[in-house]
């Protein structure tokens, strides 16, 4: 009974989130375009499916994964875990002590990206538009590796306290250089993949990790250092997707 109420509540919440989008779309459709939507019934059923799907998805995440993931982020960044039971944090911390945090960052970055619904959507579209050249799984894996590397570097940055813009600006330089060498057809898709990766699944877990670290590492400020992981997670997929296309092209050329 309680569960049923929660499902209903979640569907209502999601509907409220979707309302502005739906009213813009249908408003323009009826007032500006003034043409009947082809297969209107099917489209509406599709919208209802998206609504139900997203509600169940979010509810499931809240029920199963987020509490455990957040708890884990807390435990892994806890000094008692890193420095033994006494939890004595040395004056000068060694960034190597946080190896489990880096490993967790990498693994959680990769795995949450694989399950990210908006990335699945873009991958399906890219596969269709490219006539099969861009594989759905190939793209998703490439993006996931980018996010994993990005978040790992992001946690390293929080531990060491290096300024974020050094990393981001270096990232930009690499992206610009890669742009000149990557196959032309992949470039816009690669730029897009930076923005699509960080959504429903990744953001809550990654944010918990960042805040946990910024709270426990001595000398870090939660409010300043806790941010920035998402930025890493949206920059590195651009590089990994272009690299994926470059490697695919190279392998293709060699086999001819």
């Amino acid at each position: 009974m309680d569960l049923l109420m929660r499902i209903l509540q979640m569907i209502i919440d999601t509907s409220i989130d979707v309302l502005p989008i739906a009213s813009i779309i249908f408003g323009f459709q009826f007032l500006v375009i003034r043409r009947p939507i082809p297969n209107l019934k099917r489209v509406i059923i599709g919208f209802v499916y998206v609504l139900i799907g997203l509600s169940l998805f979010l509810l499931g995440l809240e029920q199963a994964l987020f509490p455990l993931g957040r708890l884990m982020a807390d435990q892994l960044t806890n000094p008692a875990f890193i420095y033994g039971d006494a939890g004595l944090v040395p004056e000068v911390i060694n960034w190597k002590d946080y190896y489990w945090v880096y490993l967790f960052a990498f693994a959680i970055g990769f795995s949450t990206t694989i399950a990210e619904p908006s990335l699945i959507a873009v991958a399906i579209k890219a596969h269709e538009v490219s006539g099969g050249t861009v594989g759905v799984w190939g793209l998703r894996r490439a993006v996931a590796i980018g996010v994993a590397v990005g978040i790992t570097l992001g946690t390293y940055r929080i531990v060491t306290g290096l300024p974020i813009h050094y990393f981001i600006i270096s990232g930009y330089i690499i992206v610009v250089i890669q742009t000149f060498f990557a196959p032309k057809m992949i470039v816009p898709l690669a730029y897009d993949s930076g923005g699509v990766t960080t959504s429903t699944v990744t953001v809550p877990l990654v944010a918990a990790l960042g805040l946990g670290l910024a709270e426990t590492v001595p000398g870090r400020n939660v409010l300043i250092d806790g941010f920035g992981l998402i930025a890493f997670a949206s920059l590195f997929p651009i590089m990994s997707v272009m690299a994926y296309a470059q490697i695919s092209e190279y392998m293709g050329n060699r086999s001819h």
């Binding site: 099917r42 489209v43 509406i44 059923i45 599709g46 919208f47 209802v48 499916y49 998206v50 609504l51 139900i52 799907g53 997203l54 169940l56 998805f57 619904p117 699945i120 959507a121 399906i124």
Partner: peptide, 9 residues
Amino acid sequence: FFIYGLEMG
């Protein structure tokens, strides 16, 4: 559901 709805709607 989401993926079904995506392609339908």
